[in-house]
Design a protein around this nucleic acid. Structure first.
Length: 474
RNA sequence: GGUCCCAUCGUCUAAUGGUUAGGACAGCGCUCUUUCAAGGCGUAAAUACGGGUUCGAUUCCCGUUGGGACCA
């Protein structure tokens, strides 16, 4: 255990666990596990309007589901208001912050005006000159205000573990709002206080925060805090190279879980989005292998497109790797309730359909015919250019062989029983009609495997029904 | 608009001054096969552009172009 290394994931509970948050969490997790650090979970719920307990629950649940576990927390910002207030008062005493009474509309006009003049939009600092007595009087009179930080005008350079030196000119920011009042801190301020109070040594977060970093460093300096190490992860992008958005993409882990992606497939796939081990070309990696090989300095700088096709391939791989018993457990929440009463049957079907699925949600359609025989076109029974008569006679012969057989029912036994017939009649001529008679599907697993699961009685019923279809067709 | 970040096959990426620029997904072809999958084999496909530095640049520097993020 390396007690000096502490990282954190700080999601806002304003929605279901997002792919991007999960990836940031995963990289924090890998980083911490690799060097024996501590992973802290902090819920940033200061935005009371948008934060919902149900989202917090969802986030914790799905992080756990993915296999991303934390060592400390969850802490909630909403329970730490006294701490923020203490540091805000300190900043007031130091003269580093002031109350601002500017109206939203006038600021917007100023902003527009600056942009048309081609300069960086920033606050003018007009309210800096208001004395604290005046400010107090206006607040007690009910005038709306916010708390602004006197941004020092300087150059701030920080070393990013992924990108190297990054430099900003803070004079372009203007005096940023860090709190609405003493009890309502805003993002940049709350983060700085929490990261300090929680002894966070390495801040690993998305690239969208990169321009917040110099503001946070300026605040740290004012408060006398040390600055942690930073790593800004490249963003996960959609097909159009834009940040993944809810409008056009599935972005929550919940959605992936519900369409039948396995947690270890997602873990493996997301872990390789923007990062790759140097050791080998292998991409199918277990959680332990990912931890062992993780190296944050090797993280990619450019954003990575989320390629669902590759995830599908990986998911199919992990589905095939599961035992039928394990799979049946996962399948439980996807299939009709009725099916779950036939656990043995479900397990046996799972072992057959396992290699035909990219997602678990596909299972129900693939396996339906095992439970309910659907109507099908009698023409489907015909293999290539066979005549209906030949199809019928082949099926009748199969039925006769099966009818008198009273040995153990099993796919290997059935195969040795039927295959001799194919020597004279042809494989396709026998097996295709049989398979369709049993499944009613143009594609499915093989006839012996299906018959094995259906059992003798049901198999013979289905063949008889196929024969009837063929004669009715006349 | 300003600031910052980024740039190798369609996609994810390997190669940190010397490789026929490697792998994976997707594509295509062949194979196996009663079908669909799965599997096996093979094939096509990339260093954005222009300047430097160097005996030699995917790699280092500058610029251009393009993309993205943030300010919102």
């Amino acid at each position: 255990m390396n007690s000096n290394i502490r990282v954190r994931l700080a999601p806002s509970p304003t929605g279901s666990l997002h792919i991007g948050t999960a990836r940031t969490g995963l990289f924090n997790y890998l980083f911490a596990k690799k060097i024996g650090g501590t992973f802290v979970l902090r819920i940033e719920d200061t935005d009371l309007e948008r934060s919902k307990p149900t989202f917090e629950k969802d986030i914790l649940e799905h992080l756990t589901w993915l296999g991303i576990t934390w060592d400390e927390g969850p802490y909630r910002q909403s329970e730490r208001l006294d701490i923020y207030e203490k540091y805000l008062i300190q900043l007031f005493e130091q003269g580093d912050v002031y109350y601002c009474f500017c109206r939203e509309e006038e600021l917007e006009i100023e902003r527009q005006e600056m942009m048309t003049r081609g300069i960086a939009p920033k606050y003018s600092g007009r309210c800096r000159s208001i004395s604290s007595e005046d400010a107090r009087r206006r607040i007690t009179q009910g005038e709306l205000s916010v708390i602004r930080f006197k941004m020092p005008e300087t150059r701030i350079i920080f070393q990013d573990m992924i990108r190297g030196g990054v430099e900003f000119d803070t004079s372009l920011f203007g005096d940023v709002v860090i709190a609405k009042n003493l009890r309502i801190p805003l993002y940049n301020f709350a983060v700085v206080v929490d990261d300090f109070e929680m002894n966070i040594s390495h801040v690993i977060r998305g690239e969208d925060h990169i321009s917040n970093t110099p503001k946070q460093i300026a605040l740290q300096k004012a408060l006398g805090f040390t600055t942690p190490e930073y790593a800004h992860l490249p963003l996960i992008l959609d097909k159009n190279r834009a940040k993944l958005s809810k409008r056009f993409n599935a972005v929550s882990i919940l959605e992936y879980k519900n369409t039948g992606y396995l947690p270890n497939a997602l873990f493996n796939f997301i872990g390789l989005l923007g990062w790759h081990p140097s050791a080998s070309d292998t991409e199918l990696l277990t959680q332990d292998q990912l931890i062992a090989q993780f190296d944050i300095s090797r993280v990619q700088k450019a954003g990575a497109i989320f390629d669902i096709e590759k995830l599908n391939w990986m998911n199919a791989h992990y589905i095939k790797e599961k035992t039928p018993e394990e799979l049946a457990v996962f399948l439980g929440s996807f299939v009709p309730e009725e099916w779950t009463k036939h656990k043995e049957k479900l397990i046996r079907i799972a072992s057959l359909e396992r290699e035909r699925m990219k997602r678990l949600s596909e299972f129900t359609d693939l396996a339906r015919f095992f439970f309910d025989m659907q109507e099908y076109d009698p023409q489907l029974l015909v293999w290539k250019t066979m005549s209906s008569e030949t199809v019928a006679s082949n099926l009748r012969d199969v039925a006769d062989i099966l009818g008198v057989y009273d040995g153990t029912w099993g796919s290997a036994a059935l195969e040795s029983l039927i295959m001799p017939l194919t020597e004279s009649r042809g494989r396709g001529e026998v097996l295709w009609p049989l398979r369709v008679a049993l499944s009613g599907q143009s594609h499915s697993p093989g006839p012996f495997e299906i018959a094995d699961i259906l059992g003798k009685e049901d198999s013979l019923v289905r063949i008889a029904s196929a024969l009837q279809k063929l004669t009715q067709q006349k």
